[in-house]
């Protein structure tokens, strides 16, 4: 098993009872939760709590007084979590942490050392901001898919509308064609934004401004394209440490 330098989850006396994990998913998705649950509950009688907030935290327990395993989400795109046994020192907790690290490796993730964590947290803030920006653009594009614009006035109507909500004129066949073209362009942009978000979730380096996909030329009646701020330089690679066994 590959483990970060200086931290051994198998050393009974000198090992630590926590781990930081990086998983190539955007956030604590249901499949990710399933992988983590399967790793923890594979032995020693661990059971997950029925927490109401599965997005940002998760807990497992063995018996009422036999210890708890806590997970907290530290970052998104990709998912960065930390897990700790409480109280520390238990053999079952240490083994569960080891299984979690193995599970992370099995899904192309990896454990992180303490030394890597601050850098990854800074990177998570940048990547999260980039993802939020992409999400905002994606939400705007999808909203465009539910609307149509009148070429005669600035009003916006529902995509199914037969009449403009502003000037009340009936949309013509040419208007419908313009709407369809605008919707196709928005759909393409939405697809590209989804691909970019997937790159972030898989811990690929963020695109620089020159890598940014150029927004397509606005079709007649389509939504105006928005200039987006340049995404930060990738910081992941600089903080990626060497790994030791």
């Amino acid at each position: 098993m590959t483990e970060p330098a200086g931290v051994s989850l198998r050393r009974r006396w000198t090992g630590r009872h926590y781990a930081h994990l990086l998983l190539p998913v955007p956030y604590l998705t249901e499949p990710a939760v399933a992988v983590l649950d399967a790793a923890v509950t594979a032995a020693d009688g661990w059971r997950p709590y029925d927490d109401a907030d599965p997005v940002l935290a998760r807990r497992w327990h063995r018996h009422p007084a036999a210890g708890t395993l806590r997970l907290a989400v530290l970052g998104w795109y990709p998912l960065l979590v930390t897990v700790g046994a409480d109280p520390a020192g238990g053999r079952a907790g240490r083994r569960a942490l080891a299984r979690l690290a193995e599970a992370a490796l099995s899904v192309d993730g990896r454990p992180l050392s303490d030394a890597e964590l601050p850098g990854r947290l800074r990177a998570a803030a940048d990547r999260g901001a980039a993802a939020a920006d992409l999400h905002e653009r994606a939400a705007a594009e999808r909203a465009e898919l539910t609307r149509r614009r009148c070429p005669a006035c600035p009003a916006i109507s529902d995509r199914l509308a037969t009449h403009c909500g502003g000037c009340d004129r009936r949309f013509t066949g040419a208007d419908d064609e313009r709407r369809d073209a605008a919707h196709r362009a928005a759909s393409d942009r939405l697809h590209r934004l989804g691909t970019e978000l997937d790159r972030l979730a898989r811990d690929r380096p963020m695109r620089t401004s020159t890598d940014e996909p150029t927004p397509p030329t606005d079709v007649a009646g389509g939504p105006p394209s928005t200039d987006r701020p340049t995404t930060p330089e990738p910081v992941d690679q600089a903080d990626r440490p060497g790994e030791s066994s």
Partner: peptide, 22 residues
């Protein structure tokens, strides 16, 4: 019967989980 467009989505989601400095 008229259809009004759906309201524009609001950006309410945080960019990253709130985590204290380690």
């Amino acid at each position: 019967y008229r259809l009004e467009p759906a309201p524009a989505p609001e950006r309410a989601a945080p960019a990253t989980p709130p985590v204290p400095e380690p």
